[in-house]
Design a protein around this nucleic acid. Sequence first.
DNA 1: GGTAATTACGTAAACGGTTACGTAAATAAA
DNA 2: TTTATTTACGTAACCGTTTACGTAATTACC
Lengths: 336, 336
Amino acid sequence: MATTTIKDIAKALGLSPATVSRALQDSHEIGEATKKKVKELATQLNYQPNPYASSLRKRKSNTIAVVLPEVADSFFSLAINGIEAVAKDKGYHVLIYLTHESLLREEAILSEFKSGRVDGLLISVSEETTSGTHIKKVIDEGMPVVFFDRECDDVPTTKIVTNDLESSYLATTHLIKQGCKKIVYLCISPSLSISKNRVNGFNKAIEENKLTHSGVVACDKHFDNNIELVKKILSGKNRPDGIIASVEKLTPVVYLACRDLRLSIPTDIKLVSFTNLQTSLILNPPLTTITQPAFKMGEKAATILFKHLDKKKAALQNETIVIASELFIRQSSAKK
Amino acid sequence: MATTTIKDIAKALGLSPATVSRALQDSHEIGEATKKKVKELATQLNYQPNPYASSLRKRKSNTIAVVLPEVADSFFSLAINGIEAVAKDKGYHVLIYLTHESLLREEAILSEFKSGRVDGLLISVSEETTSGTHIKKVIDEGMPVVFFDRECDDVPTTKIVTNDLESSYLATTHLIKQGCKKIVYLCISPSLSISKNRVNGFNKAIEENKLTHSGVVACDKHFDNNIELVKKILSGKNRPDGIIASVEKLTPVVYLACRDLRLSIPTDIKLVSFTNLQTSLILNPPLTTITQPAFKMGEKAATILFKHLDKKKAALQNETIVIASELFIRQSSAKK
DNA sequence: GGTAATTACGTAAACGGTTACGTAAATAAA
DNA sequence: TTTATTTACGTAACCGTTTACGTAATTACC
């Protein structure tokens, strides 16, 4: 409770608080002997500087905010690991905020940041976020913002993304090469930049290969609804022979729908899914996946933000950095 | 950049900063008319109080720390969701720190908290943490600490745990009922309280049923090592007919080892795993699991911490709150 | 040997809110 | 009508650290 302050140390050594402060910062204005005395007493008394006093005076919090839709998804879990690794290394603290895919919450969270609580912001927007007005506002007020994964087209800042269009195209052509003629792309949160890119990659491949009876189907957030939807699709005539699940949580939906309908993956239907789950390879059958470099993306986003914070350059570049996803081909898309 | 402060509002309205501060806090000392004027101007100027100035003066940060081994595991992901939900509700901010299972890092993180950066602490200790000395130290300095899941026996404070011993016992007897005679319990981080409880539950069931050729096997953190280990166990004579995987990440190990050895789950070997993965039911075969109430545990831990912080009671009760895990029986432990 | 520069500190004012204390005016109690 | 109380605000100190500015003492320079 009775924490020791700079004043305590100053009094004990017959110095002024200013001298102690400078000694602790290794200022060249302080003599070596004094520095040593101060530092020794500080460690002896287990002195911990009050971060809020420091932040108040220096107008710097050494804290960043990470704003995410949720941490249920394995992508964001891994991204947090990447972010935290860099933050600890750089001596920054990480505040975490979840929007639960709600634009309102996202706005409420961001509006607080004018207070100076954080020096910078890493964000992956909610699925309801179609415009980046609220994000531009905090940027205009001087807050550096780096997007990772889910970005906003209309906000000019640095963005760390993966090659969604290309990998979706790759996944689709992979299915086509494996013999699929009628591919359904299961989509969620269609307004997101990454969703659009993935859909575009899919459509590009479909058009190039002139496939008919292929297309995009919108799912919602309710597991049961999606099961019903997929079952309906799979039991109609013109049953698809290939499915692309555009997000992790749609994977179980497809597996269960197929099981219920006694359809075989990959014999009846081949499947590729966007997911970071480590269990992909022990699914029945092992799942062909597009795996995003989640850890690296978080790491990169944090690195860029901290570099900017240290250098105090002008604004962050309006730059999009792409870290490639990987296609892991497994049995769920096997030829026969 | 030029953020508006209380002084700006005071000057604009011909009031003193003190009056503005009180008006914004709805103090009864301020007249209604003045309050209204102040609040209107505040929202108009988009005033956001500087949290660090406030924290410095009030000696309260409205921030808690969550210290975790990692967020790779789905348990901790869900727990964070629970914690964040309560924190947002109560107006608290959440700092996240990862120990990466290292006691050294855990100590380093905790030692910083003497500074007053956070008002309280939720922690799930690293696997290297055999003694809670460093945790007792921060408690002694007045920091309220609540454990969740991985606790320390020697630290008297509130702990939110699940019924590890009982559910491990339940899992083991389940396997025995299903016909298993030789059960291997795959263990990791044996020094953790939860590991001990789980092992004890296992041993209790084994002893009660007088099973021989059953026992605990220690795994390490390296996937490949574990695969080799499990394969060796499964290819020796006296091959076990049941396996309990005590943590999530051992699940793929068992599945892959069985696949490599062409052993069938559940015909040759029955499996139960401690895990929160939603993909359990689409594994091959669907996995029988002990599922921890991760979200609820996070929620409960946060709720108790905030209740304490609001009431400023003495110390947190040395109380252990148990939220039961659930056994979901699926095909991986089926009789035939 | 006189001036300039450097070294090693102290003084005091910030940073932006909060709050103990004081006070004038308005109201209530006597 | 006088005193006591309440209402509604202002003054100024304070939280702990940082830093612009000042200064005495030492060293360097010509």
